[in-house]
Design a protein around this nucleic acid. Structure first.
Lengths: 281, 281
DNA sequence: TATGGATTGGAATTATTATTTCATATTGCC
DNA sequence: GGCAATATGAAATAATAATTCCAATCCATA
């Protein structure tokens, strides 16, 4: 057997794609089928797979051999391994990956770690979202004239995506960033007819907290996304969400926060359209 | 065959747990093994499973028959089906949620949709990452004097998080944003000893592409994160990654891109530390 | 358009794997 | 403790599936 037989699915995939154009017709046919229906390869028999792909079983074996396997069976193992991997629980994987990365197990482990952290966070939030708070927040933001988006440091990427999405949905908004140093003035314009989305996680950026305080004292309602009920942000907020993001290598995932933020934004956009229609009708 | 043969895994599981205490010793042994190692049942042969569980193959068949199956093969089908379901579930769920949201099924559906989109994207990228490219990118970025981070519009949140993380890791970096209009000057400073992380997805922001072109012509190596091999960004890049983000309600998830970006950043940080240590030693 | 090499189809063969069978052991019950 | 019913182990057998082989076909090239 060739020394460089693809042992994991991704390598196999790449190899197939590379050689795609130099493969004979029938072999190419089964190659395409394999990448499109990996599950069938994992579970089927040579005969059943060949039939589904419209080739002879022998072609399937030739395909495997071209890739360096010694037969269909060893090729199939790669497809089976892929399913196994995919299904192992994320929490377990995350723990294992942290340990692995700790002992310096290469860069792949770092990547896997971030993916696992993000998945864990998403998993977590999907069960935790308080639907009532969610509706309240949407209602509150939907009737705002201008939505102010307030976040610093680690949370800033989320804020910038919210601002981008609000812009696309033609909802007036103002991102409060620190760069220009004009925050105080910007905040000064906010009125009780507006609303704020504020995002901050421990360790809370003092500037974000301070600005949230000022703006709430002006009577502007705040929707907060933060990480615990003890968050200083929670006390200024009309509605707040607790989002627990898993971290890896010292950096927290943003995926759950992002998902919540986008859902809020789009829901607000939808609610406004509905309200608009009703008014006209 | 019994009329009430468990056809799905959950029913099977329940059935086994119910009868657990009335089963003969060896059969109970294999029952426990089956629930603990469902993946092994799905993929193994009767002989290999029996060996792992410490029983005879015939016992395994008797176990299947006790449950009403006519043999091990039909029992195994249930375990295989379970793996299939699990894997397809995300894509299917996403499609279902999209349909639901279309017909105005409330705000919770929007939230679920974004979570599903993010999960799908993560699932997808975790199998797809080309490890070689990943290592190349890390090597390239680790030896850069300054890392320039280039992204507009939708990709900008990712860039800002990269910049934040690089800063925390004390790696010199420069975010190229459009706001101040000084991009041309900023780009002018970049030299072949630096490197760029460029992120852009279809529809590619013309400014991002143009800036990538200019900077690559200056001989600065580019690591690109984009969405297909046809991306205009790919042609300027030394290394590029294809990230397929699922979208929901017109907004693409960023979670896969974020995970990749963070992994790159942290890996670069680690590589620099290692190199530093070696130099001193 | 003839020729050699590559590719393919299909049946024959071999291998692997599930199932059955039967002898032996164990358990519960009188 | 003895007997019947049940459970188990191990090997034989049957079924299924992978692989090989060879003839037929296709395709490029002279």
């Amino acid at each position: 057997m060739d020394e460089r037989v693809p042992r994991d699915f991704e390598t196999l995939r790449t190899t197939i794609l590379e050689r795609r154009h130099s493969l004979p017709k029938r072999i190419a046919q089964i190659a395409a089928y394999a990448l499109d229906n990996p599950d069938d390869i994992a579970f089927g028999t040579a005969a059943s797979i060949a039939a589904s792909a419209g080739v002879q079983p022998s072609t399937l074996i030739r395909f495997a051999q071209q890739l360096g396997f010694d037969g269909f069976t060893s090729l199939q193992l790669v497809f089976r391994e892929r399913l196994r991997e995919r299904n192992s629980s994320y929490d377990e994987r995350l723990a294992a990956l942290r340990a692995k990365a700790e002992e310096g197990a290469g860069h792949r482990a770092i990547f896997d770690g971030f993916v696992a952290a993000a998945s864990t966070s998403l998993n977590d939030i999907s069960g935790r979202l308080n639907e009532e708070h969610f509706e309240d927040a949407i209602a509150l933001l939907a009737k705002a004239e201008t939505i102010y988006v307030l976040a610093k440091r680690r949370s800033y990427p989320v804020a910038s995506y919210i601002a981008y999405a609000l812009g696309k949905l033609k909802i007036r908004n103002q991102l409060i960033e620190s760069a220009a140093g004009l925050n105080a003035e910007m905040i000064g314009f906010a009125s009780p007819r507006d609303a704020v989305i504020a995002i901050s996680f421990s360790p809370y950026a003092p500037a974000a907290i301070e600005e949230a305080r000022v703006i709430s004292e002006q009577g502007v309602p705040i929707v907060a996304i933060t990480d615990s009920s003890f968050s200083p942000l929670a006390q200024f907020a009309k509605v707040w969400f607790e989002v627990a993001e898993a971290d890896f290598a010292g950096f927290r995932s943003l995926s759950a926060t992002m998902a919540l933020a986008m859902a809020l934004t789009v829901a607000v956009g939808e609610k406004r359209r509905d309200t608009g229609r009703k008014r006209k009708a």
